[in-house]
Design a binder for these strands. Structure first.
Length: 324
DNA sequence: AAGTAATCCAACCGCAGTCGT
DNA sequence: TACGACTGCGGTTGGATTACT
């Protein structure tokens, strides 16, 4: 196979790569097949052995990353739900950039995905507010505006769908700490690609939640070409490209629509309460709400997180700032 | 329609921790 | 204890896509 120009190539090749003709960059369908097949046969772990024994010209690290972030059958793809957003905000406020730890509480989500979400969405808003994402102002904004609003929206969605409040993500909290209890739910089927795999013959006839349609001996979705498997975007049956307006529910088995959130959302019982309402004058001056234009996506459009904002919030906060 | 800017996210890197010898 | 191999984590990059002019 041709050597693929890598991403983020900023330094000289590692010695390991200099010695062998290792591939870098996007994975091809063939490589994905090989890795899936090998893991199905031998299990996870010992990634350097995987790379060697499976005949993949990849580093062990690359194999591990590809498997964990993309090929693993329980990887959940698609938009981050309201509940997940709430959970991310809460857990990040407690643990900071401990993406892996945060990801453990969001079944099916990878640390990479959460990290990307944080950087592209949350930090974007911090930038718009011209404050540091680690600043007290921004954290207060999250806690007293975003999170209560998320709770409202979750409850509203639950009400609209006729879900009793007891089954929604109930929230109570103190300003100092939040109690989280974790119930481990099985949200996704395990290794569901094994069912149709004929390992003995080497013939792989499997459907994989992250790869649309059948794999192996069955022709791959026409949206795939060997050279674009991980970057094929909108036509990618992996559901790689996650656009705020795209509906990818057809691309995988897991519900991503709001109406189903309660069913699949982990019952990490984040408990917030009325105390989430900002105490008068709590906010420190410094947030630059003038920077938020009236038609800013942040306030009246865009994705779920963006929608948490509206003009009333801004006016309210400006009032708070003026009072100080 | 074409060019440009902004955004998204898969994949890379370096570093630190763990484990076996 | 020292060393190397391996693994996992968090930060960063840049190609692809989307939005805007």
């Amino acid at each position: 196979m041709d050597r693929v120009k890598g991403r983020g190539c900023k330094s000289s090749m590692q010695s390991e790569e200099e010695m062998t003709d290792l591939r870098r960059g996007p994975w091809t369908v063939e490589e994905d097949f090989t890795l899936i097949n090998y893991v199905a046969h031998h299990g996870e772990g010992r990634w350097n052995s995987v790379a060697r024994c499976a005949g993949l010209k990849r580093t062990g690290k690359s194999c591990r990353l590809r498997w964990l972030n993309y090929l693993r059958p329980d990887v959940r793809r698609g938009n981050i739900t309201l509940e997940e957003q709430l959970l991310i905000l809460e857990l990040h406020s407690r643990w900071g950039n401990r993406w892996s730890k945060i990801a453990q509480h969001l079944p099916g989500r990878t640390d990479n995905e959460i990290k990307n979400y944080w950087r592209t969405r949350v930090q974007k808003h911090a930038k718009q507010l011209k404050c540091d994402v680690n600043s007290k102002q921004f954290k207060d904004t999250m806690r007293y505006l975003w999170m209560p609003r998320l709770v409202e929206r979750i409850q509203a969605a639950a009400t609209a769908n006729g879900v009793s409040s007891s089954t929604t993500t109930t929230t109570t909290a103190t300003t100092n700490s939040t109690t989280t209890t974790t119930n481990t739910h099985q949200y996704f089927t395990d290794n569901n690609f094994n069912n149709n795999m004929d390992i003995g013959s080497g013939q792989v006839i499997l459907s994989h939640p992250n790869i649309g349609g059948s794999l192996g001996s069955v022709p791959v979705n026409s949206g795939f070409t060997p050279e674009n498997s991980s970057t094929a975007a909108s036509s990618d049956s992996f559901g790689t490209q996650v656009s705020p307006v795209s509906d990818l529910t057809d691309c995988y088995n897991y519900p991503v629509t709001q109406s189903n959130n309660q069913e699949y959302f982990p019952t990490n019982q984040l408990i917030y309460g009325d105390t989430l309402t900002s105490p008068t004058g709590y906010f420190n001056p410094g947030l630059d709400f003038q920077a938020m234009e009236p038609n800013n996506q942040w306030m009246d459009g865009g994705d779920l997180l963006d929608n948490l904002w509206n003009v009333e919030d801004v006016l309210f906060l400006q009032q708070q700032l003026n009072n100080n």
